[in-house]
Design a protein around this nucleic acid. Sequence first.
DNA 1: CTGTTAGCGCCTTCAC
DNA 2: GTGAAGGCGCTAACAG
Lengths: 337, 337
Amino acid sequence: MKYITIKDVAKQAGYSVGTVSRVINNKSVSKKTRDAVLKTMAELGYTPNAIAQSMRTNTTKAVALVVNDISNPLFSKIAKAAEDVLRLQGYFLLISNTNNNPDAECEIVETLRQRRIDGMIIAVTDESNERTQEILKNVNFPVVLLDRELPQEYDSVCDDHFQGMEQAVKYLMDLGHTNIMLISGSEKIRPGRQRIEGFRSAFKKKDIPVREEQISEGRYDSVYGYEQAYKALTSHNPPTAIIAGGNQIFTGVLRAIRSCKLAIPQNISVIACDDIDLTTLMSPPITVITRNLRDIGRVTGELLLRRIFEKSMDQTRKHILMPTELLVRESCQNPGS
Amino acid sequence: MKYITIKDVAKQAGYSVGTVSRVINNKSVSKKTRDAVLKTMAELGYTPNAIAQSMRTNTTKAVALVVNDISNPLFSKIAKAAEDVLRLQGYFLLISNTNNNPDAECEIVETLRQRRIDGMIIAVTDESNERTQEILKNVNFPVVLLDRELPQEYDSVCDDHFQGMEQAVKYLMDLGHTNIMLISGSEKIRPGRQRIEGFRSAFKKKDIPVREEQISEGRYDSVYGYEQAYKALTSHNPPTAIIAGGNQIFTGVLRAIRSCKLAIPQNISVIACDDIDLTTLMSPPITVITRNLRDIGRVTGELLLRRIFEKSMDQTRKHILMPTELLVRESCQNPGS
DNA sequence: CTGTTAGCGCCTTCAC
DNA sequence: GTGAAGGCGCTAACAG
């Protein structure tokens, strides 16, 4: 089973390969010729070989989205939205999964480079990893950072976790909470840092000191959420409210609360970061700090496309900040009651 | 910013391109030469152009996984597992999303064909769609169907939804239920068909007739789950147990149960298909018909790899059936109590 | 073990 | 508007 080539079409149609190429690429050919060529292409079931086209034109019409966890619904929603705008311009979106492994990440970026993609959206696993930075420096295509900051400047689309967290803490304080705990993912990536800063800022504004135990900073997974929440809830001074700094952390927090046989919000108030099925389907539904993932994906895709089109790489970098929002539901109440 | 080519390396190292090519591909070269070439490659920051390699070798070392909903955690888990075995053999996994749209699906398969991937794993959106079948017939690489059946034979990895469903119904019957409802996704794809058949079979074995209203067959989404569950629960003869034929359907069922202010399992018993975060985090945790997604992904990837390696396409097709299992938790009880 | 060279399928300049 | 030909970067066959 062999593929039909442009030569086969040319011969069959009685034209030269150049002419066939011109109809493929919508260059100027007479209507009569075009129709004839199109007809033989259909007859032969010919489709141009994208590899050969890439080789010749030095573009692959493919861009990559590199994330650390593809099973996180957050990313799949962003990916969907980005893909929509990309596909409209004829670009193919490759989704790659680093599994939170910096080495795997480096390998993937390297592979992508070899495969000559036209651009990349990446949420690096660890902003401080030097090897990642080094490899990123060597790529020859535009890069857009997704909610990340790197010493070397890149275009980026970030979310305002700072203001979302500040608002959440203020909301809890207004409800009467002061013993609030934040279980955050690592500070090694921007979201964790921003959330912790927002948390501190809210306390500072009220002139209330933050105790060491109120912030735990670690991993973005369920086990970590469980461990930290359980430890805090069974301590001699348990928090009256917990903010889970990520959706995986949140599921762990939930398990811990169940283990301790506590009721939400009667015994413990809870706020989650990012809205998932679970937050709305719980009884009671959970108050969340949320963001518009579709918008984020769309804007990110658009920014990358713009960079690909302009191709003069030496422009100043563009940074877009997307809003976050506190969605009040029924998981928080006055700690005294 | 230009890419370094094999010529640059050859010139710089003082060898021919053939020799450089040989060290790239680990062919026989003297150790001295290899070291020298490797050194200059590193110095120049050279990486082979995968496009050119593909052009020459007629292989892309890329395979695709085409699914209808990338945000479904089911697929991302399968994808992860498949990717692991594929990557080990040097293959790159492209994940594509059809969004349950048969036209988009056709377009994607067409694009993949143009891009000359080496193989494809696909869960088609609609098994009866003729255009899909036609396009699939024309691809020049091995195809493995993921939990789907097509008139034209392909290799496939399917799950035994029939036996899982039968077992679930039997379990409910043993508990004393007879007015059991199945809210299923479309029969147009294998899982829906299998589940409905399993449901009927369980009733047949007990010689109990199945009433029309006990099975609703429609879409795999949350809204459908809600509508059907709500309608049934507010009817004059509400079911004592509901089986949700999919994880999205399940979330809808949950909403309906909440709307009706029913308690699980006191007022209504519930079984879900496929285990997700939600099923274990609910109180009470939900009994599910589950399957090992890691195994499925691994086996699927392995089957595809085997087909790619053997390259003689005219073998008889291989069909692998993966087991399902009823995981009893606390969401079902005797309907009388 | 190593150098030389043809050609993969396509696009693009240069003639006509 | 159309044909002829070179070459993108690489591999593989053939010589040496």
